[in-house]
Simulated assay, not measured.
Amino acid sequence: MPDSETYAFPSLKRELLGAMSHDYGRRVEVNRSWTIYHVFTGRPAEIGTRPMVGLSEFDATSVMLFLNSHNAERRKASFSRHPSGGGSCQH
């Protein structure tokens, strides 16, 4: 069966996935709910104090894309403020 998100936002998905780092992923749980997790720790992501568990597939995908694009924008802004990486090494 085709992946439903392919039809939900094909161009948005391609655009965002191509332009961002993937700090967050999504996984389906045994109870068929979805969890957004931090890919390096495996722990559920949190927004404020709310863990991103028990979500629908659509909500998990939407929030995951938002979190990853937000992180990519933060990195881009940080890099533009400190193009040398922010280090104090002098040659």
Rank of each mutant, 00 (worst) to 15 (best):
T6N: 09
R14Y: 04
H82M: 07
N71V: 03
A19C: 08
P51T: 05
K76D: 07
G48P: 02
Y7R: 08
C89P: 02
R32H: 11
Y24S: 05
K76V: 06
S56H: 01
H91P: 15
M52K: 04
F9M: 10
P51F: 00
S84Q: 15
A72C: 03
G86C: 05
V30E: 14
H38T: 08
W34I: 03
R74K: 14
S78C: 08
R27E: 10
A8P: 00
I47R: 11
A77K: 12
P44C: 02
S56T: 15
G18V: 02
D23P: 06
L17A: 11
E29I: 05
F58W: 07
A45L: 03
I36G: 02
N31F: 00
K13N: 08
N68T: 01
R32M: 08
R27K: 12
V53W: 07
N68K: 05
R26I: 15
K13T: 09
P10N: 04
V28D: 03
T41A: 00
S33R: 13
W34P: 02
L17H: 09
Y37K: 00
E15I: 12
H91Q: 15
H38N: 11
L67V: 02
S11I: 08
R32I: 00
R75M: 09
D3T: 07
K13Y: 09
A60L: 05
E15Q: 12
K13G: 06
E29N: 10
G18C: 05
S62N: 10
R14I: 12
G25P: 03
L17E: 15
H91E: 15
S56E: 03
F40R: 14
H82K: 09
K76T: 09
V30I: 07
G48I: 02
H38P: 02
G54V: 04
P51K: 14
F79M: 12
F9G: 10
T49W: 11
S80W: 12
K13V: 08
S84N: 15
E57A: 14
G48A: 05
D59W: 06
T61A: 10
P51G: 02
S88F: 02
S21D: 10
N31A: 04
L12K: 00
M1T: 12
N31T: 03
F66V: 08
S21L: 10
S78L: 11
N31L: 05
E46C: 14
R43L: 14
N31Q: 06
F9C: 11
A77I: 09
P10H: 07
A60M: 03
A19I: 01
L55R: 04
E73M: 12
R74A: 10
V28T: 11
M52T: 00
H82A: 09
S11Q: 10
